[in-house]
Amino acid sequence: MGRGQPATGQPAVVLEGFSYLECPRWHEGRLWVSDFYTERVVAVDSRGGTEVVAEVPGQPSGLGFLPDGRLLVVSMRDHRVLVRERSGRLAEHADLSGVVSGVLNDMVVDDRGRAWVGNFGFDLMGGAPLRYTTLTRVDPDGSVAVAAEDLGFPNGMVILPGGVLVVAETFAGRLTAFDIGEDGELSGRRVWAQFGQTPQTDDVEAAVQRLEVAPDGICADAEGAIWVADAVHNRVIRVQEGGRILDEIDAGTGVFACMLGGGDGRTLFLCAAPSFAEHERRPVREAQLLAVGVEVPHAGLP
């Protein structure tokens, strides 16, 4: 980890019996996580106790929190972002159907309540050709705008201290950075880390085979490095700007998202499952939440 120190052990199972976990967030002493195919958002406390905090029939994905503490939830299939009111009721925060046609994906929310939401861009589960797509910004009043274009499956995102948004482009095999302006506009697009060559194909299976890293969910630490869930190689890697891999943890199974949390920010939680294909994950309950100790604590958002 930091300064060449390795991770402090192998991942251990925290909870199991889920369908497919994604988008973990540490908030107010609990890990909040979406379980795609049971259509629930679950909060997990330090003793392993769970609470279903939201039921999202449109399939929950990205999670984030407004400055007043209310939860935002991406509802994937109906192209909406929902807000969990203090009563526990879900209401519509934003409708993205006018600017996004593909299934929504992950999300990051900044300290002003602005949210950036990715989308698949093509019918991944239906076998459609790979297509690049957009990133959408949702302002606190619920208005939406295209924030960036030509992204290769925008997935996990972090906001580094200093206001830099980093987006994982899964099928491009890279992390891409933007500067966030005072008005929320993105500028200064650049490659933060490139993992091998970007596959030049619209065949998903061929692209997967060529990816050296398929960056999915990501989180940042206090040394400016980013932990990356590598969706096709059963691991998480810790990467510095420029692409140097500082550490690697073999999860022994597929890992699709990660989040630093725990009381001191040094527990790396992993969302694990044997695969990501919907037809394989929906009927079974094989997904797990794993955890492993690391040396450098959490920083940035989420």
Rank of each mutant, 00 (worst) to 15 (best):
L270M: 10
V255L: 02
D139L: 09
S87R: 09
S75P: 07
E16F: 03
G48P: 08
D78I: 09
G243I: 01
R30S: 12
V164N: 11
A177S: 15
F269I: 06
P129Y: 09
R77K: 14
N155W: 00
V146R: 12
T253N: 06
W227L: 03
E205K: 05
A145R: 15
G126W: 05
R131P: 00
R86F: 10
G102I: 00
A12M: 13
V191A: 04
G224P: 03
E92Q: 15
D150G: 09
G224M: 03
A299L: 07
V83C: 13
S187F: 05
G88V: 08
L71H: 01
W116F: 14
F195I: 00
H279P: 11
G152N: 03
V236A: 05
P161F: 04
D141H: 09
C23H: 11
G64Y: 01
E248R: 15
L135T: 07
A273L: 01
D202T: 12
S61C: 13
A148G: 03
A273V: 03
H279S: 15
A94M: 01
R70I: 04
N119M: 11
E149K: 12
A193S: 08
A273Y: 01
R131W: 00
F120E: 12
I226L: 07
S143R: 15
G4A: 06
R86P: 12
E278K: 14
D150N: 14
E55V: 13
R80S: 09
E39M: 11
C271N: 11
R281K: 14
G181K: 03
R80Q: 13
I245F: 01
V108F: 05
D179S: 13
S143Y: 10
C258I: 08
E223D: 15
R190Q: 02
F65V: 13
E22I: 02
S101H: 13
P161N: 07
I226V: 14
Q288F: 06
W26M: 00
G69L: 08
D95M: 07
P67H: 03
A225D: 12
A147N: 08
N105A: 08
A207N: 00
V41Q: 07
M76Y: 10
C271R: 07
P60E: 01
T133P: 01
R30W: 06
E185G: 13
D230G: 01
A257V: 06
G48L: 09
V164Q: 15
I237S: 02
G62D: 11
G88W: 06
V103G: 04
I226G: 01
E278W: 09
T253V: 14
D221E: 10
A229M: 03
L90H: 06
E185L: 11
P199V: 00
D139N: 12
G4Y: 02
V99D: 02
